[in-house]
Every structure is written in structure tokens, then in C-alpha cells.
Design a protein around this nucleic acid. Sequence first.
RNA 1: GCGCCUGUAGCUCAGCUGGAUAGAGCAGCGGACUUCUAAUCCGCAGGCCCCGUGUUCGAAUCACGGCAGGCGCGCCA
Length: 558
Amino acid sequence: MKKRIISILNKTVQRAAQEGALKSPPEGGFVVEVPSSSDHGHFATNLCLTLAKSQKQPPMKIASVLLPILKECPLFERVEAAPPGFINFFVKRDEWMPIVTQILEEGASYGKSDFGEGKSVLVEFVSANPTGPLHLGHGRGAALGDTLCRILELAGFNVGREFYINDAGRQIRLLGESVFARWQQIENPDYPFPAGGYHGEYIAELARMISAETDLASLSDEEAIEVCASLGKDIMLDDIKRSLNMFRVDFDVWYSETSLHESGRFAKSLSSGAIAEKIYEKDGALWIATSEHGDDKDRVIRKQDGSYTYFASDISYHRDKWERGFSRAIDIWGADHHGYIPRVQAALETMGVPKGWLSVMLIQLVKLWQAGAEVKMSKRAGTYVTLQELMDEVGVDAARFVFLTKHNDSPLDVDVDLIKKQESDNPVFYVQYAHARASSILRKAQEESVFNGIEDEKLLKNYLKLEEEIALIRMMGDFPSLVEEMAKSLEPHRLTYYLQDLAAMFHRYFNLGTKNPELRVITEDASVSRARLFLVKAIRTVVANGLSLLAITAPEQM
RNA sequence: GCGCCUGUAGCUCAGCUGGAUAGAGCAGCGGACUUCUAAUCCGCAGGCCCCGUGUUCGAAUCACGGCAGGCGCGCCA
């Protein structure tokens, strides 16, 4: 509907220009929006305000030129100009009804668009080191990334989901040393634990598992550490995969850092192409000239001792992403890595990758509250709540929902007690209940044979007369543009707000019937009932589609 | 010291990317169940949108300067 009005406005301006009423006008610049007050119509535009300067005329005067043309349009009941220069549109009631039939026709694909034009996007998220279980921060990243992918797909992008496994380098070695030390400590409690090692209880668990499978005592310490590192990593990776799977997140590619090195891509990516010219040697190390592209300073990629930095792998990995031909890439990182954005962007530009090809989304920290106090978490000390524990306590649906109730750039407080204890107050149940309630009404109608299931626009036009009904239809009509906007702005959290609003509107509508039987969906009047049942079916569809983007179940009854 | 993020109701946060009278949930108080599902609804109360200056028809939103909190500023990963 909004798009229709935009195109009507464009045509109107063109026509006014042709007729000489306006100087040939510049494109765009104006917006059409839903005003907060219903006095200002279903839609409003600031078109005249934006034209005022270039036309050198007061906005209200421009409005008075455009108004007669707009009034001819059969879409509108009323068009008004309002100071300081808004135009308010009141859409004819009947014109809303096609939205309902459209929803019913399209069903699960309502909301789909070709906004993305089939372009390929690579979304990399979670990418946790396989040195420990996933924590709440990873859960937030997983929920955000996965829902973003679903949104992008619905908006017409071709999406690849990727998990980068940091399975090379020192942290895996440290995992091995930590596990080995715990194994030693079974016999010898005084065996020293490595500095900066991993302290979680799971390390001792790994030691038990690995020593049960492998006779560590028959190996040299060095060999045993390697076994602990390798098997420990495999076990943790399996654990991560299992948790993510339960969290309804599936990746297309698990990209191993080790494979980057073993395949030779790593070496090649730093020695060929435009980037090779930006790499130089200084003080016995290899540097890359990222400062030419906005980084604070040049960065080391190979240290004096001959080993490569983490950043070198990152360059190589992102180059590989680019060479795989994606038209854009999105990374989701913890906010503590924000300092790396400029250098990664700079490295990409050094290779000739266009600015803006890579978008990095940061997620702020998740704070956990329990018994009214913040639970301090430390990965190194091993005191943190895992994603698995959260899922076990509150369920996947609630967990996924809470992770998307805040903008990714805003810190998130999760009060586990609250989600657990007050299940009924949880917003996810509120939305699911709307779906269950709609289902229940439809079930009842089916049983009583009120509903023949044949849609008829005329029926809707004749019998959907309530303001509340029109408001619901308008809101559902926004869903496709919401999906597009979320894909554009990378803001999946808006979906949880939309669903809560839609559910609230439906619950309110339903409750009209508790006071006045004529306002129930199923009433004495068969035609009114049928029209309302179509509306309810449409609501159920939109709620279900929204929940499906969140990968949250849509129950038939609760 | 420099950079990024955040600052909106008692608490946790939205605010459609510059629009008209700033919203929701929770917490508080008061109401509605012989119902198409009360996991719901209705009402009341609650505001210096951190402060200041600027940009313009118009600012919670943009710019600059402060203040406060968080996170980063390695030849660590």
C-alpha cells in the first residue's frame, strides 16, 4: 500500500510538472509513513515540505497544487493538506481488503519479495573457538544470525551460512595442555595447571573421556598433549554442533582454519594479486599497509619468529569469501572485537574489494541475572552459563525470542529466574498464544461448519466494518515492507516488536466479543462470521510467518 | 590519551532512519471470566528523551562540545 502511494505521488509530481504547475522536480527525498495519530490519516507524506526549497514556494501552496490531482485517485476516501505542509491520505475501506485475500492466497510465502534480486550473501556467525561450550553471547549471535538469514532469504537473497572454526594455533594447544593437566591431576593433584588455561568443569570431563579411550600413559607428554588437543577439539566441536542444532541453527559450511593452511590457500592469498604489493618487510616481520585505507597503522601478518598472526588468517579467510563470488558478506562479531573492523576492511580494500562489501554487525555483551544479582561470567575462569543450560531451563522458543528483543548494538540482560518462573508473562508465549487462539477459533468454526473456506473479497468488503478490523488489516499489510526494511537495515529485532504489536491487536479484538456477542468472530450472522474467520485466518498466517522467521514454534493450542 | 558503542517512565528497552500529541513490557494501583481459550483484555499513575550549542519549516533522531557507563586500542587469539 505504501509503495502504491509512493508511485502515485511520483506520477502526480510528474503530471504537475508537465502542466507547468511545478518546475521540473528532482527525484525522491520524500517519505510516506504511517502517522502516529489517526487524525492524520492512514498515511502521510512530507513531499511538499521537501519540495519547498527547490520550488521556492511555501509547502502549503505546493500542496494546494497537488491536492486536486490526488483527489481524483480512486484509492482515497479523502486527501487533506495540513500545516506545515503534510498531505494526509485516508484510504477507502474497501481498498484494504485485497491484503486479506493476498495473505490467504500466498500463505507461508506472504512477506516474500525480490528485494534481494537473488544476490548471494554470505553470513558468518557464531564462529566460536572449539575450546569450550557455547555461552550466552554465542547464543545471541546464533539467534541473530539465523533469523537474519531467514529474513534475507524471504527478502529474495541467496544466503550462505558459515561457521569459521578457529582450529589452528595456540588456543587449541592450550586446550590440550589444560586437558592433559587435569588428567595428570587425577593421580597427582599438585600437577601444575598451564597459565591462562581453560578452567571450566568440562575440561576435567574431557580428560576423563579422552583417557578412557586412549592410553595417555603410554605416550610421551608431548604426544599426549597433542592427543588431548586434537580429541578435545573434536569433542567440543561436536558439542557445539549439537547445541546449535538443538537451537535450530544449521550451517551450510563449517569452515576450518586448518583447511585454509593445508590447502595452500593461505600462502597463496598473501602472495598473489594486488595485496602482495602492499606487503613489506620491516624489523624482521612482514607487514601489510592497511593504514593506506583508514586503519590507524600498518599491521604485522608474520611475526619475527616466523609464525603468522591471527590477522593473517583473517585476511586470507575473507579473501577466500570474496573469491567464492558472494556479492556481499556479513560478519557477526562480539563487540569486544570492534577494534578489528577497520583493519579487516582496510585489508579487503587493499585487495580491491569494494567498500561496503563486508558489513560487520556487533553484538554487545549478554549479562545474566539470577536471584536479583548479576552473575559475573568469565570464560577463562570457567564460570559462565552455557547456551545448552539456557535452552534446558527456558526452552528454545523463549531463548531465541529474548535474544532478539533488543537491538544487537545494545547490551542484553537476561534474567533466567524471570523467564523460568514467569512463563506466562514471557512475550514469546504472548505471541504464540495469539496463534493458538486464532487456531482455536478456526477449529471451532470448522466443527460448527460455519466456515466453508471459500474466500470472497466481496464478502470481506461487505462485512468487515469495524475500525479494529481495518487496523489489523493495515498492520498485516505492513509485514512485507517490514521484512524488506529488516533486510536492508540488518535489524531483525524489529520482528519481535512487530509480532507483539500484532498479537496485542488481535487479543484486543478478540476481547471485544467478551462484552458484546455481536462482536465475536463467530456470531449469529453467518456472513459476518465468515468474513471475520477469513480475517482470523490471515492473522494466524502472518503470526505463523513471523514466528517461522524466528524459528519459533507456532502452536495450534496451548 | 585515542577509537567504537550506549544514555528515553521506578526497572528492561522500542521508537519505522529528520515528521505532527514520545511508546511497549515488567513492577504499582483499580476493574472484566455461565467466553470463539483469562498464557487474555480495560482503566489509572508514571517523562528535563544525560547536559549545552548548532543545522531547518521541524530534532529523541543529524553536527560539534561536554558528562556518565561499557568495550577496545599487541609481532595475543
